[in-house]
């Protein structure tokens, strides 16, 4: 039970990071982006390659942080990867989604997002191989925090938890203390009204992609640290991300963070009662429940 709670919070915090970008885009551009989860996979794999490049620069960079399997070079690689993934997200928008929303409806963008997801996932498979891999081959031993009830925690997991909390705090400060954050919040609440007040919508859309892509990249590195890197990691996460965004309420950044935790906890706790094989269906059950009971989500606005 305690172990399930911890695992749920851990997975939930990763989902939260991924779902924030998804909910922003879903609200501002009015379409469900099925390729968003592929940004998570891209971020994780970019970090893998960059890690190898950075650690080639100097041997001191490969030293591991105390107790962790995370090296200095991996942290540098993650920072570069979030920039790269954010830029790539904005580039995909410029090449595909922007053109489609100029002369077709939002559902056409949903169609295209499925296609892009399929392409990205399989290109990753072509480049990195279909087998799963890890950032580090060292075995990270779990610490027994308590034996009854059993609670095993890996130091890497604490690192992930702290990292996600720091990122969320930074995001909170960005949207509540800076004018660019205000503008983004305004656009996500009411795109037309924001434009009337002189906010550059095109720039805010670019910012939303940059931000969403960067958060997805961090989520990808965390997910890969906790599990592993695999070309299908995006496909495995996409439904949970939608569940988080819908439970929290589309367009609500805090809702997505809360929704991620709820989905992570619910999926983890459900495993106490249902066989593991049914785990992939959990997000669907959550989505269906949310749509029947509270279609606007916990923190979403009525529409």
């Amino acid at each position: 039970m305690l172990q399930s709670l911890f695992d749920g919070i851990l997975v939930g915090s990763i989902l939260s990071l991924g779902a924030i970008g998804l909910t922003l885009i879903m609200h501002i551009l009015r379409f469900a982006n099925f390729s968003h989860a592929e940004l998570i996979a891209l971020g994780a794999y970019f970090a893998l390659t960059l890690d190898a490049m950075v650690s080639g620069l100097s041997a001191t960079l490969t030293t591991r942080l105390p107790h962790l399997s995370v090296s200095v070079s991996l942290i540098l690689a993650m920072l570069l990867s979030l920039l790269l993934t954010g830029l790539l997200a904005a580039l995909i928008d410029k090449l595909v989604f922007k053109r489609l929303r100029e002369n077709a409806g939002p559902l056409t963008m949903v169609f295209a997002s499925f296609g892009i997801g399929l392409i990205v996932r399989n290109v990753i498979g072509l480049i990195y191989g279909l087998k799963s891999t890890h950032y580090s081959n060292d075995i990270a031993f779990a610490l027994m925090v308590s034996s009854d009830p059993l609670l095993l925690i890996k130091p890497d997991q604490l690192f992930i938890l702290v990292l996600t909390i720091v990122v969320m705090l930074a995001l909170h400060l960005l949207i509540t203390r800076t004018s660019i954050g205000y503008a983004l919040l305004a656009v996500s609440e009411n795109p037309e009204l924001a434009q009337v007040n002189g906010i550059n919508l095109a720039a805010m859309i670019r910012l939303a992609w940059l931000l969403g892509g960067s958060l997805a990249a961090i989520a990808g590195v965390c997910y890969a640290l906790n599990n592993q890197l695999s070309p299908v990691m995006g496909r495995d996460l996409v439904l949970s991300l939608f569940a988080a965004a819908i439970v929290g309420g589309i367009g609500s950044i805090y809702g997505a963070a809360l929704g991620g935790l709820i989905v992570g906890l619910a999926s983890s706790l459900a495993l106490l009662y249902i066989p593991t094989g049914y785990k992939p269906a959990m997000p669907f059950v959550i989505i269906l429940l949310a749509l029947y009971v509270r279609p606007n989500g916990l923190l979403g606005e009525e529409r």
């Binding site: 379409f31 469900a32 059950v285």
Partner: peptide, 16 residues
Amino acid sequence: LRHDYLAIATFGVAIA
């Protein structure tokens, strides 16, 4: 509901 909710729900029912 919103039109893309059907996309998400049908995608989910396939996985389920």
